[in-house]
Design a binder for these strands. Sequence first.
RNA 1: CGGGGUGUAGCUCAGCUUGGCUAGAGCGCUGCGUUCGGGACGCAGAGGUCGAAGGUUCGAAUCCUUUCACCCCGACCA
Length: 587
Amino acid sequence: MRARTLNIVTLREDPADAEIVSHKLLTRAGYLHKSGAGLYLYGHFLKRVVDKISRIVAEEIAGAGGVEVTMPIMQERSLWERSGRWAGFQATRTMLTVTDRGGQEFGLSPTAEEVVTDYASNQITSYKQLPVCYFQQHTKFRDEIRPRFGLMRVKEFIMMDAYSFHGSEQSLDDTYQAMRQAYTTAFRRCGLEAFAVEADTGAIGGSSSHEFMIAADVGEDAILFHPDSGYAANVERAECAIPAAPAWSAPAAGTALPTPGAKTIDEVVTYLQANGYPDLTSANTLKAVLLVAETVDGDRTVAAFVRGDREVNEIKLSNAVSQRVGEVLQLRAMDEAAVRAATGCAPGFAGPGLNADVVVFDAVLDAEALVVAGANQDDTHAAVSIAAHLADAVQADITLAVAGDVAPAGSGELVERRGIEAGHIFKLGTKYSAAMGAEFTGEDGKRHPLTMGCYGIGTSRLAAAAVEQHNDKNGIVWPMSIAPYQVVVVPTRADDENLMGVAQQLYTELKAQGIEVILDDRDAKPGVKFKDWDLIGIPVKVVAGRGVADGNLEIKTRQGEGGDVAISDAVTHVVGLVRDAMAALRG
RNA sequence: CGGGGUGUAGCUCAGCUUGGCUAGAGCGCUGCGUUCGGGACGCAGAGGUCGAAGGUUCGAAUCCUUUCACCCCGACCA
């Protein structure tokens, strides 16, 4: 491709609305044009990067048994009602909808379990056809509450989504592991350092899932690791062991403790330490978190109790509450009136015995130990044990794990890293097939629901993640496998027929060798061209300049390695650089 | 949706507090000339409904009201 035809426009300054390096560089280098909030036009270079990532991902998914198809983006409401998810996606307003002239509503695909399960129920009739895995690379829509970070979080994006169907849990396990391996290989081929972590299943559901994270400080997800045992989990999911609370000189059970004006744990502890209980710590208190759970059947009040020195993990809590009242669409804080209705007192003095539809105690709490908890009476706490309140309560792990906690699988502390969620794999079981009647006839001659798995990779997000991992002060440094072009040939002067002739011939020969090459035929100063190609991040640069008189070209990688090479050896040399880099990424 | 902020040239921004001449700068763009290996220089130019609507005023980018858009912090997720 000739640079003049590409109409290359680069910016010297960072765009005002960009926060993270990938957004800045992709915009400055002309890959990305903002069309609206969370809506981007992909320039020619970005289109090529995304296509390359798509191709690598497709090859690996196909290698794991995937069959590529294309599903509709507009999906009928009735299909989503069959799985029961229409209400949930509307309540959380995750799905964008459109209405046709007849008044029929459609969801714009945020994911495609319904469509593919409907397809599978039509296609699959016998166990002899199983397993099968359909996948696609298509645009997805999500009504993001807050799009941000350039390509990272947008309303419209490109995703690889795969769905597998099985006759047994064992078969699902096999495919799940094959997908996990395919993901690992695909990310490596894209030049990305990724790792798998245990994750919450969220709106997709199912029994278990892993997320694939790209390590990056700007990542929106916190991951807790235990290097020795290999434990790694999203903080939303992470379990932890909490050391027992230290003993304190508690009064008799049931003793009321006046705590005038002390509403927060800190205030209560500080007040009581100064008023007769010097060895009290926040670990000896009980924190009440009052929430309202929205379900398809209406709101339910929730009281969650964790140790006073810890925070509630709302994802874990939501899952625990779902066990009792059905799927929780959303948790929100109780307003003051609701708190008064539940406790009979002002906010800040809630404790066991209050009136809520669902009461959850963290599993780590010692039921017999005396703790300081709200007495459901203004300006009063009490020394209580939760044992008497467990009867109708849920006991579950609802504590937010933090770095420094003891890892669940033994000794040692959890450490925190941040990551960008690039992919997710789920074991769905029969959630969708049972709801939608997708069944097959087994070897036993009976009808069984299909067992399912699903798998997603944020293809366009990967492009941004790659820039986060591969850049320097001069711009992007693409891995060879996903660079928009592999090589650029830069004649230092457009008006020098000799230089242009040498550059032109090299360009033609490299193209003939199957190399993706750009000829920079722009009439610009050499410095301008060099800056542009560094910013854009083309892996190999060949300069036809002052060395040509001596029969040399300068060949350098984007990392700055290389030097003069005889013109006669240039094609072989460049082809070698490209092939070696590609081979290294294949591993 | 709650909290904070910003809308002025293609891009990055000044001007607004305290209303006043033809609304400015840098980058980018056009022409000419000199340059030509890491974002050159000189000269001459083009480019703006100051987000939108309404109001106050002799006079509004500036003050008031309404509204829209975008960005940041929180809840959603590939």
